[in-house]
Amino acid sequence: MRSRRRPHRRRTTPAERIELHTADITDLPFEDCSFDLVTSALAIHNIADADGRRAAVDEAFRVVRADGRLLLVDFRHVADIAARLSELGARDVRVTGLGAQYWYGGPWAAASAVTAGKPAQ
């Protein structure tokens, strides 16, 4: 009897596969189309001006690969984030309220998730 098992490969831990970078969200130090998924949670509202928030969304869209996904969570400017992603050509742009589980301090600051996909090229 012959074995058809593949040779054993060492499993890696998430810490071995993930790199943590600190960078300016409006000017990310990554090449275009670098990531399968781009996420941001409660960060974009910290940018004081609309041009800066728009630049942050532009950068998130730039670094996600074709056919990749974006998940941007915030409690302010969510409609602007969704509108900008649509302007950039994102597909399936959706805004979903996250409910009480994701309040930012209380019900007056309920967060929403903006999800979108980058079209295949």
Rank of each mutant, 00 (worst) to 15 (best):
M1Y: 10
R4P: 01
R5P: 00
R6V: 10
R6A: 13
R6Q: 15
P7A: 15
R9E: 15
R11S: 14
T12S: 13
T13H: 12
T13V: 11
P14Y: 05
P14F: 06
A15L: 11
E16G: 14
E16N: 10
I18H: 10
L20T: 08
T22R: 07
A23D: 14
D24Q: 05
I25G: 15
I25S: 14
I25R: 03
T26W: 04
D27E: 12
D27G: 06
E31W: 08
E31Q: 09
D32Q: 13
S34F: 06
S34M: 03
T39N: 03
T39Y: 13
S40V: 10
L42Q: 09
L42W: 11
A43L: 14
A43W: 03
I44S: 03
H45L: 12
H45C: 06
D49G: 08
D51Q: 08
R53Q: 11
R53C: 04
R54I: 06
A56C: 05
V57I: 03
D58F: 00
D58Q: 08
A60D: 08
R62S: 05
R62D: 04
G68L: 07
G68K: 06
G68M: 07
R69W: 10
L70P: 03
L70S: 07
L71C: 13
L72K: 07
L72M: 07
V73D: 04
D74Y: 05
V78N: 11
V78H: 02
D80G: 15
D80V: 14
D80F: 14
I81G: 04
A82K: 11
L85K: 05
E87P: 00
L88H: 01
A90Q: 09
R94I: 01
R94A: 07
V95R: 08
G97N: 11
Y102F: 06
G105H: 12
P107E: 14
A113Q: 08
A116V: 03
A116M: 02
G117M: 01
P119F: 00
P119M: 00
A120W: 05
A120Q: 12
Q121K: 01
Q121A: 10
